[in-house]
């Protein structure tokens, strides 16, 4: 039910826009993310963008996991 997917925002017309994932495009309501800009990734749930997605934060999480040595330890995730 709370399923939501990341899509790239490629068009904005007032509080509506078009978002894309792979070859799929769809109209999305942007009322909940008025600060979204073209090129941003947004989280889409039931036809609405409910949140912005931070590429920096995504990279941080992955970098952290990638830094694990097989026998080493995983660093603390930042606050």
């Amino acid at each position: 039910m709370c399923l939501a997917v990341p899509m790239e925002l490629i068009e904005i017309n007032d509080f509506y826009g078009v978002a894309r994932m792979g070859g799929v495009k769809r109209d999305v309501n942007l009322m909940l993310v008025p600060d979204a800009k073209i090129g941003d990734y947004v989280i889409i749930h039931a036809g609405s963008a409910i949140s912005l997605l931070s590429e920096d934060e995504a990279r941080k999480t992955l970098d952290l996991l990638n830094s694990i040595e097989d026998i080493g330890s995983i660093p603390e995730k930042g606050e």
């Binding site: 039910m1 709370c2 939501a4 309501n29 009322m31 909940l32 749930h45 039931a46 036809g47 609405s48 409910i50």
Partner: peptide
């Protein structure tokens, strides 16, 4: 309309 806080604002927006 069903759903938790993920969905309720979407209904509000509608």
């Amino acid at each position: 309309a069903v759903g938790f806080e993920t969905t309720a604002p979407v209904t509000a927006a509608s």
